[in-house]
Design a binder for these strands. Structure first.
Lengths: 207, 207
DNA sequence: TTGCCAACTGTACGGGTGTTCAGTTACGTT
DNA sequence: AACGTAACTGAACACCCGTACAGTTGGCAA
């Protein structure tokens, strides 16, 4: 054999990317060999190097591609105007949906950061910080307008993102709750965190 | 050489444990070789096998030791009676302190779970669930007594733990905030989450 | 139908992997 | 002072690692 019938570079490149994501997510970057990846897509090791410079580039492409796509999609989806409360709701729903749809890439993206070279890591950090700032800007706006009651916007940002991203450690489609229910519950908790409980009117009104 | 002067099995066993924790935290289980660990404690590879059956046992001992110690310490520290609010505060403070004091073990403990064998993993899961239940029991009690306004105690438990554990991804002693300040801020957010904002009286009282 | 090139194989390179074990040395006990 | 044993070395085992590259084959254009 050599070239295989029906083969095309495009298809193999995608298969390589997908196989790497799947295997890195399951076993971890360091624990997966180039030979395992090759076997997964039905090819010999050498062929992989037509599509990636080396193993490190493979990881970096996955992570930076993920972060860039996340930022791009967030930019397209999230409203830049409207009330802080509405913008916060949009962010929470977007974050949950995006992360629940891509559990493997999300998992790799904060599990394998330390396996990046220093340069690659620094670049990812910039993107991650930019994403966090999308939320922090909403919180700042809400605090400035007294819609939200927050002591420290940066800390609240980190706490919320950790809380929301945590979903991906236990979420499985077809679980106890639908995605819509999960969104509703987390939205409630997030609203509570910024001091505007949905039940506020009920509690404040004479009973 | 052979046996080295001043050597003792006890000391080497501890040095092995510590070096493994340090290196696993920094580079990941799969990326660290037995030879690197041996070099770190100034010994030849073969000597390690006097203190651990194999590499897997080394990881499992670290993780299960960590979880058992966490549960034990929690049991000694946390009050079993008192108001749900007081118990919740105790839990939050305990969790933050414990995790901030042991960043490496905490990091390994949810980073390297997938490198455990199936059996070892299952055992750790039981312990982790038991720890989560410590918090969920408090939330259930608070909900039952109408101190807390929670829709789903299990989801709130997971959200809180993810939020609190997230601290260890950015915390560095000597940072912007003291540990006490961090505790106070997270406590505020947690209280908000269960629907009892500290500012409630202020907001409700005539201004 | 020939020829070109993208796609891929097969093999090799130097080095690292976890683990085992016969041999060696320091320490504590008698 | 002699001995037993705890602590460790050094070398070896069989195998896996990432990467490179000359050679081979299928698809497509001329």
């Amino acid at each position: 054999m050599a070239r295989r019938s029906g083969s095309s570079g495009e298809k193999t490149a995608i298969a390589l990317h997908d196989a790497a994501v799947r295997l890195f997510a399951r076993h971890g970057f360091a624990a997966v060999s180039m030979r395992q990846i090759a076997a997964e897509i039905g090819v010999q090791v050498g062929a992989l190097y037509l599509y990636t410079a080396d193993k490190q580039a493979l990881l970096n492409d996955i992570l930076s591609g993920h972060m860039e796509h996340l930022l791009l999609t967030a930019g397209e989806t999230l409203p830049v105007s409207g009330s802080p409360a509405a913008r916060l709701e949009a962010f929470v729903r977007f974050h949950i949906r995006y992360h629940v749809l891509r559990p493997e890439k999300v998992f790799i993206s904060y599990m394998e950061l330390r396996n990046l070279t220093e340069d690659n890591f620094a670049a990812i950090e910039v993107l991650r910080r930019r994403y966090e700032d999308l939320l922090e800007d909403i919180l700042k706006a809400g605090k400035a307008g007294r819609d939200f009651h927050i002591t420290d916007t940066r800390l609240t940002t980190l706490a919320m993102i950790a809380m929301l991203t945590g979903i991906s450690t236990w979420y499985k489609s077809g679980g106890r709750m639908t995605q819509e229910e999960i969104e509703a519950h987390y939205l409630e908790m997030v609203n509570n965190m910024v001091g505007r409980p949905l039940a506020a009117e009920l509690l404040a009104s004479p009973s």
